[in-house]
Write a protein that binds this DNA or RNA. Sequence first.
RNA 1: GGCGCGUUCGUCUAGUGGUCUAGGACGCUGGCCUCUCACGCCGGUAACAGGGGUUCGACUCCCCUACGCGCUACCA
Length: 522
Amino acid sequence: MRVRFAPSPTGYLHIGGVRTALFNWLFARHHGGKFILRVDDTDQARNVADALQPIMDGFKWLGIDWDEGPDVGGPHAPYFQSQRSDFYDQAVAKLLAEGHAYKDFSRPAEFGAERQAAEKEKRQFIYSRQWMAETEADVTRFEAEGREAVVRLKMPREGQCQFHDMVRGAMSFEWSGEQDHVIQRKDGSCLYHLTNVVDDGAFEISHVIRAIEHLSNTPRQIFIAQSLGLKLPQYAHLPFVAEPGSSNKLSKRKLDKYLKNRDFKVLYDHGEQIARQIGLTASPETFNPVIIDFYREIGFLPDAIVNYLLLLGWSLDDHTEDFSREAMIRDFSLERINKAPASFDPQKLSAFQGRYMWRLSMAARLEMVLPYLQRAGFIALPVTDDVKSKVKAILEAASERISIAGDILDYSEFFQADEKIEYDEKAFRKRVVNAVAQRELLKKFRQPLATASDFSAPGIEALLRNFVEQEGVGMGMVVHALRVSLTGKAVGFGLFDIVAILGKESCLSRIDRALMFAEEQS
RNA sequence: GGCGCGUUCGUCUAGUGGUCUAGGACGCUGGCCUCUCACGCCGGUAACAGGGGUUCGACUCCCCUACGCGCUACCA
């Protein structure tokens, strides 16, 4: 079994492309076959190496490795279509020689006129082939008229093309519905359908697993393959990945439109906030939830993304959702691919991410989170053991509140100087400024805190419980004012953890500062 | 216009003629827990696109319609 994914070097790895590649990869791994990466760079307008790097990096990050292709080479090299033109030329020559293709000397305007006439009469366009050169004499004559030739496929005009699609079942197309497609331009460069089929043949691809938009292209590719005497691959056409909340195909170009989708915007804003804190330029070219880099930048787990994508168009049964790599390789099959398009759901992706993050060991989470603190300027390199244990304590206290590695930046108050804490204005007013009784209690609680010998979370809890009992009030009378004073925020993890992590000195200093501001304002 | 593909809760899906008063997950939502938020636990909400057949019986098979998407390029 040999399968391939053929990305164009566009500079970014699209979520939909990843899903297609993943299914190919899983199929190969399940059957012990080969997964090949082939670079579709026939459009050589851009710098291929630069534009390919982010794609390869994305696959490597996701753990989708390839057995043959760029970087790793292989027995069928080169794997860049721009370097394979000899193969294409030979194929065109063979098709021409055996009458499966012809030189067409029509001028674009002439050909276009025929097509327009057909469209105007609302009938199917079938080229007259009146500028087809069948003999050398024709060629000479047309060239004498100053014409240039492209090479067109000489498609059958009767009968059906029938094939089996492993996702969709029996397929049947009328040959008469097919056009005489151009396979080679005037300048000698070859077009997609030809290059694709030639390479699949050369690479001995056994299964072509690709997106549904290629289903209609299959008959003409079969024609080319058969004319070239190539063994036909099995085909499997995948449903496309649709936009959130619509059945349109997901596209990187429509970021503005997707941002109107609430869930998509929540994800984007979340990422953008992290990006801003680590000094990352959120360029729409790469920083976009349709592109895989987005997730890597803000601290998603590749396993979570892969697991989510696996379920976008495929399922094992009515209840299994968590798949380790081993499990998905073991259980994957083309037969269980869904036929209908599947919408990309940012919320469900986030749910997977949360689950995967929480399953990670403390050591792994710590390693994930440290770079964000470094890049935001909160911790210095090298990271000392003291800093590590502090971050670890924060991770423990925050537990599932940190679902993306970049979320650690939500707790920046633990790394800021005491005099730099910014207060959430509303919370500060409600809990400290206007809450006069609570403020007095806070002032009073400062004393036992200052003399506490046990500054662990349980120690602080005992201290506070004892305090409120003596005062004859509820915990709420102290907790809220204290939290806002210490962190500037109304929400966060357990207060006793906050106190313990900050330590006595910081706590007292922050309490004093908050009380001072509150008294100024009231 | 022609050809092709698709259509089960808001979303991802289970379902291959009776087990479906349609199951699971995400979301949303009520409650419990509770120092806030989150987690967790218990509960709730919500779907077979429409119409004809076939059949004792249809989400499942057939036809039509509607809607969506793709191909119909000297794009890939």
